[in-house]
Design a protein around this nucleic acid. Sequence first.
DNA 1: AGCTCATGGCGAG
DNA 2: TCGCCCTGAGCTG
Length: 278
Amino acid sequence: MPEGHTLHRLANILAETFAGRVVQVCSPQGRFAESAALLDGTRLTGADAYGKHLVVEFEAERLVHIHLGLYGSLDIGHGTAGTPRGAVRLRVVADSAYADLRGPNACELWTPPQLEDLAERLGPDPLRTDADPNRAWRRIERSRAPIATLLMDQSVVAGVGNVYRAEVLFRHRIDPFMQGRLLRRREWSTIWDDLCALMAEGVRVGRIDTVRPEHEPDVMGREPRVDDHGGEVYVYRRMGDPCLVCGTRVRREVLAGRNLFWCPRCQRRTRRGSQSGR
DNA sequence: AGCTCATGGCGAG
DNA sequence: TCGCCCTGAGCTG
């Protein structure tokens, strides 16, 4: 279950494992069978990620667009694939490696123009070198929506999910309900730079760690949460627990259909923020 | 066994 | 704003 770092990591592993090789492609579950037959026996040329979207590239400009959604998984392993377990929408096999895709939101054959359309409607992705944070800022600076909502809007920033948004706002002590238009440009720059660093580390280590080493003394006696996703976080899913920095109980509230977590003291509503209402 | 929730996003109303 | 997509893990009983 992925935020952008997971998809970039999967793209890297896919490319390392399969790029340049002729692969077998099938759809044991059947829902991608027609396209799989078209790709079977052709060369896989690469893989790339755009926000939370994964694109697997085959020869002849054939692209497979994958979105894992909330439930999807892509298991890449070495050795023999064996009998598919569960509903495997897409299986890619090379000599001694395989990849099984289960439960994706999307798995479809695309042409390059379709990928261009996607890239156009996505905001800048902190994990892509071509990303322009000013594109996001132009949306944020004129929006009355809470900054916590804007960070989750993939047309504003691509790849940020519920963990990164909660954590990056905590790290910069920003009231999640502050309207985008009340954010200072300097604050946005800081958030963006931090997202670039945090998410790049997420790609490297395969989990979301956001607790700063300099906070370790504060953390003593207050266990950082090692969440189900495997990372150490300040506020994500820690509602009711003491804040690792100030000890105040972490709060949770549903915002735009998703759980938002924050520390009401560290991320206190400022004169600016309090104008935003809820 | 059944229920709830989850790192996401689309389309209907 | 809600329902739905669709899968698995972690509860409860």
